[in-house]
Design a protein around this nucleic acid. Structure first.
Length: 282
DNA sequence: GACGTTCCTCGTCACGGAAA
DNA sequence: TTTCCGTGACGAGGAACGTC
């Protein structure tokens, strides 16, 4: 059944280190790639801007749903209000909650080295643990931006496996949950999962209540059964989590694409304004 | 074909937060 | 307080690829 039926050693000792290093590295890499992606274009814009005109975005126009108003300062000192091409600016990817978390973590890391060594690991874990789930992040984004689909509670049909039915061996005993049917069939007991375990309500009713168990053997069986159930649920949860993560990454990538288009349009708009405002040489 | 490397997927564990 | 859920981390296995 499991190809990883091993015990994890020294996990707790290593964890504090890996939590803050690997995770922040991962997050940084995401941030980095996204930021890099758009900053490349931003820089091309910034290079051309200072020589000719100062561009600033008016504070009143940056709110969601209201058109962005760009103040372009002309060489003559004259300021022109320009309504941007992008009517409803999308919230930046960099503003998403998990990025803020990374920023905090980064600050903590780049602080005074001696001080950072004595930073309480609990506090750092706290900082990192504030990272919301992918579902929350994406749903927040989707509430801001209509184009972004929400992550469904139920597993989507994209996986092609019609009803989510899995069959696998499980310790002997018959029990049934609200979403999964378990059947014991002698040597090869199987169960069927008809819905993702995320849909399982908390406190799933077990067939044999602990109070009815007396002998150590029964207790051991119950413990084994609970463990198998937990493993099965966690397995499904991990799958679901990975699916959401993929969806989240896809969402970020699509937003990068959108922002790149926006950036390109803004650069073109700026070029047009430059052409309009630049003094004729002939 | 053998091998090494890289990348991806999966199951499991550990942990924190939310819910009961 | 206990239980459950969501997710990062870890290691194993396998596929894909390049090199010899």
């Amino acid at each position: 059944m499991s190809k990883c039926g091993r015990k994890k050693y020294m996990r707790t000792n290593v964890r504090h280190m890996t939590m803050e290093t690997v995770e922040s590295q991962q997050d940084r890499s995401v941030t980095h790639s996204v930021a890099e992606h758009s900053s490349a274009h931003m820089q091309t814009g910034q290079i051309s801007v200072p020589t000719l005109a100062q561009v600033s975005v008016a504070g009143s126009g940056t709110g969601r749903g209201s058109p962005a108003v760009t103040l372009v300062q002309l060489p003559s000192g004259q300021t022109v209000q320009v309504q941007g091409v992008i009517q409803t600016p999308h919230p930046s990817v960099i503003q998403s909650p998990q990025i803020q978390t990374v920023q905090v973590a980064t600050i903590a890391e780049t602080d005074d080295s001696a001080e950072s060594e004595v930073i309480d690991s609990h506090k750092r874990r706290e900082i990192l643990s504030r990272r919301p789930s992918y579902r929350k992040i994406l749903n927040e984004l989707s509430s801001d931006v209509p184009g972004i689909p929400k992550i469904e509670e139920e597993k989507s049909e994209e996986e092609g496996t019609p009803p989510n039915i899995a069959t696998m061996a499980v310790p002997t005993s018959i029990y049934q949950t609200s979403t999964g049917q378990y059947t014991a069939t002698g040597d090869m007991p199987t169960y069927q999962i008809r819905a993702p375990t995320t849909a399982l309500p908390q406190g799933v009713v077990m067939a044999a209540s602990p109070g009815s168990l007396h002998s150590p053997q029964q207790l051991a069986e119950e413990a084994t059964r609970k463990r198998e159930l937990r493993l099965m649920k966690n397995r499904e949860a991990a799958k679901e989590c990975r699916r959401r993560k993929k969806e989240y990454v896809k969402c970020l990538e699509s937003r990068v694409a959108v922002l790149e288009v926006q950036n390109k349009k803004l650069i073109e708009e700026l070029e047009t304004l430059k052409d309009i405002c630049s003094p004729k040489t002939d």
